[in-house]
Design a protein around this nucleic acid. Structure first.
Length: 107
DNA sequence: CGTGTGACTCGGT
DNA sequence: GACCGAGCCACAC
């Protein structure tokens, strides 16, 4: 069974709030859950989609707009993002900043 | 200026 | 306490 921690739940909740055609960064999510220093921990928490269609971890990218990593493969992640009308160049999201979803501070 | 690679650090499990 | 990881920054080409 997949027993997850409270942090996982927070990360999943924030990621799940990302609307279609929109993306976010690990740092934004980390900040949204009240752990602005836990960007890599957010990646650690996602690791992959425990609830695949509910947790669009492929919409989560790095602070510099790069796709970062993806358990299924970066190419696959880019492919999904392109399907969201998000353009990627050399592994970096084009206009990612404009598509960045603004999280409200939870705490 | 833009892109690529490496190293260090922070946080979590 | 040890290991992992999807970040961040800096340097080099």
């Amino acid at each position: 069974m997949e027993k997850i921690t409270k942090f996982q739940k927070l990360v999943y909740g924030a990621t799940k709030k990302i609307p279609k055609g929109r993306i976010s960064t690990y740092g934004e999510i980390a900040r949204a859950i009240g752990r602005p220093r836990s960007a890599r921990a957010v990646g650690n928490a996602l690791n992959c989609n425990p609830f695949a269609p509910d947790i669009p971890c492929h919409r989560v990218v790095r602070s510099d707009g790069s796709v970062g990593g993806f358990a299924k493969g970066n190419k696959e992640k880019i492919r999904i993002l392109e399907g969201e009308k998000i353009r990627i160049r050399k592994g970096k999201i084009v206009d990612f900043e404009k598509k960045l979803f603004a999280f409200g501070l939870y705490k």
